[in-house]
Amino acid sequence: MKKFKFWLLGLLIPATLFAGVVYYGSGEAVFLVDQIKMNLGFTTTYTADEAYLKGTVRGENFIGGINNYITNSGFEINADGWNGYKDAADERPVDGTGGSSDLSFFGNLITPLRGTKDFRASLPASSPAPNNQGNGFSYDFKIDQADLAKVLRISFDYTSTSDEDLFRVYIYDIDNSQLIEPVPTEILAGAKLWQGEFQTSADGDDYRLIIHVQSTDTGGHTAYFDNFFVGPQEIANGPIITEWVDGVGYSVANVSAGTIIVKERQVAENIEVDGYIPITSGATGNIELTVPKAMTNSYTGGNYPWYVKAEFYDNSTGETYVGSGFFNNDTNKIVFTGPSNSIWNATVPVVAVSGDQIQFHLNYPAEGFEGSAQLALVTLGRGIYELRVIQMLIKLGLL
């Protein structure tokens, strides 16, 4: 029988225990605990401890390795954890809890934003107050110790029937009784995806996500939310690669030429250049190309042929001479060379005449170019499925 090995405990547990166990996403009614217990012949009636474990190992929290503190992020089953509130009528909430909310919210099955259901919040056209300002809904969550004094990301899908900016997003530090304004706070009308971030405190691990009605609009509106996320993030860095653009500031000396055509782009700390020099009359000395972006000083003063590739096309014979080049003891000036580093000049590779061409390709480290930049925000995975399952089995008395 195929075995599933727990390296942490050094135990062998039959793989049949995990038959049918998959990492379910938001909206699946089957949890890891359910499936494992069914495989063992247990019922799916939970003790308090088992109910806790059911919440911690359900795939919705860790789908794709993402650590999401909003465990009921998609409202696919119910609205557990979400609570309406009514604070004082103000653009900012007090603490996002308490009072009797004038809003009504429930799971919406009609063309949801994601999955089979999303969260529908209805703002009445009339309410006990002149408008709906001060109402809202919130979700309490606890963060890991590793995320104290860290920047966490917030995101969710959103749409509404209003062209007004109805809501703002806030975080409440429950332990320190402190209202936190994420950056940004406003949910702009017409937004499809809202993203923001906030800084956690060094000593508070209990927080509340607040969606607050800041608008004084008296019309009745409906808003839809889905796919809530609050969790850690890391910066994904990568090389800077820009689009090709027209190059300017290139010139050639000691040979007459027409308009030099250049395309250039940045690739990490290098500049990559493709160019074409149409010769209109013979050379009078070493053919020298001036580039506007200087080579990094540490690389000058030598022959670095891998930075420069060139071809001289003899229009009268149709022959092409392949060469290279180097920065001629100057960070902005390049000379072209042929075999044995013979510099192209009045007679090398041939006597240049009108109609001849030089095509060149440059790829060299340029001053002032950074090699990498922030490309995206990536949520941090925790990879703790195995540990959670072990904890669950211990709770069930199976280990």
Rank of each mutant, 00 (worst) to 15 (best):
Q178R: 10
G84I: 02
E91K: 09
D144T: 09
D140T: 07
I110Y: 06
G98C: 05
A89F: 01
Y85V: 00
P112R: 09
D87K: 01
F119N: 10
Y85N: 00
A89E: 04
V94P: 00
V169N: 01
R92K: 09
G115H: 03
K142A: 05
S177F: 05
F105C: 10
D163L: 11
L113R: 14
F105T: 05
I171G: 07
P112G: 10
K150G: 03
T116R: 13
K86P: 07
L179F: 15
F156R: 03
A125Y: 12
Y139R: 14
T116S: 15
D147K: 11
P130R: 03
E91F: 09
S104A: 06
V94S: 04
D118E: 11
I180M: 01
G136T: 10
Y85R: 01
A146G: 12
S122W: 04
Q145S: 13
G98D: 04
D102Q: 13
G107V: 01
L109F: 14
V151P: 03
A88K: 02
I143M: 12
I154E: 06
T161M: 15
R153C: 00
K150Q: 15
P128F: 15
T97C: 02
D140A: 07
S100A: 08
K117C: 14
Q178S: 07
L123M: 10
L113K: 08
S101L: 09
P124E: 07
S127W: 05
S138Y: 12
D102M: 10
D144I: 01
A121R: 06
I154V: 07
A88G: 10
K86M: 02
S162C: 10
Y158K: 00
A129D: 10
F119I: 07
D118W: 13
G96M: 00
G136V: 13
G96T: 00
T116K: 09
Y85F: 07
N135V: 05
L148K: 15
S101R: 09
A146V: 11
V169P: 02
L103Y: 07
L103G: 09
A121P: 04
S138C: 15
G115I: 11
D90G: 01
F137R: 01
S127H: 08
I171K: 04
R92L: 06
A146T: 08
D157R: 08
L166E: 14
L109H: 05
S127K: 13
D118K: 12
L109Q: 09
T159N: 14
N83G: 04
E164L: 08
D140N: 13
L123E: 05
Q133S: 03
R168A: 09
S138L: 14
N83K: 15
N135M: 08
A149I: 03
G134F: 03
S127D: 09
F106W: 12
S126E: 08
I171R: 00
A125Q: 11
N83Y: 11
I110S: 15
G134S: 05
D175M: 02
I174M: 14
W82P: 02
D173A: 05
F156Q: 00
